[in-house]
Nucleic acid binder design. Structure first.
Length: 215
DNA sequence: ACGAGGATGCTCT
DNA sequence: GAGCATCCTCGTG
């Protein structure tokens, strides 16, 4: 298997929507203690400025008291992991985007396993179909073994990083984001049409057609 | 196939 | 105390 170089910081130091869109088809790699785990990203969501669903909503970086709030991390260095516990049970993996001082992040919602699927199966006991291993943001962190101790880590180098994926021709669509109340009308979710590894969750705003390539 | 409901803990009001 | 960027199980059809 090839050893692709990590996507560099400049990739993430851009508009959150562009990063979310372009992460579709890229590889997420994790050099876990048990071995290399990786997958193709097939679903993402962008979060950012003027966004009521964003954890940085209402935070002003110049206000001292706000530096203690959870979402302040989204103003940090692009390419940094933001991993948080959702519903008291599931870790969700984000990568911080935009230049430092501007809030933004991309949530990795689903991947299609490439390497280490046997290890993923072991980490997901009880899962029958392979597509259920990583077809959701909480599922993929379980399958990879990612938790809150990875939050703040540099995602431009091992053990957890992104890389170019195989070039394919597949249709990418947008929709509203899943599982949020405010901000549901924004078409900030990106996913590969008809890919079985995309999460089964339904957005409040239905899909719109997208372009037909992933680059 | 799909929908309802429960688990579970952190963050902010 | 309310509200979550979720997942799983167990109903019904």
């Amino acid at each position: 298997m090839v050893e692709p170089p990590p996507l560099d910081r400049g990739f993430f130091e851009r508009d959150s929507l562009a990063v979310a869109r372009e992460l579709i088809g890229k590889l997420l790699l994790y050099d876990a203690p048990e071995g290399r785990l990786s997958g193709r990203i097939v679903e993402t969501e962008a979060y950012g400025m003027n966004d009521p669903a964003c954890h940085a909503w209402g935070i002003h970086p110049g206000v001292e008291a706000h530096t203690k709030r959870r979402g302040f991390a989204l103003f940090g260095v692009p390419g940094t992991a933001y991993v948080y516990l959702n519903y008291g049970m599931y870790w969700l993996l984000n990568v911080v985007t935009e230049p430092e001082g501007v809030c933004g992040a991309v949530l990795i919602r689903a991947i299609e396993p490439v390497e280490g699927i046997e290890i993923m199966r072991q980490k997901r006991p009880g899962v029958r179909r392979d597509r259920d291993l990583t077809n959701g943001p909480g599922k993929l962190t379980l399958a990879l073994g990612i938790s809150g101790d990875m939050s703040g880590s540099d995602l431009t180098r091992s053990p957890l990083y992104f890389a170019e994926g195989p070039t394919t021709a597949e249709e990418i669509a947008t929709s509203g984001r899943i599982g949020i109340s405010a901000g549901g009308e924004l078409p900030w979710r990106f996913y590969v049409v008809e890919n079985p590894w995309v999460s089964p969750g339904k957005p409040s705003v239905v899909a719109r057609p997208g372009s037909t390539t992933n680059r």
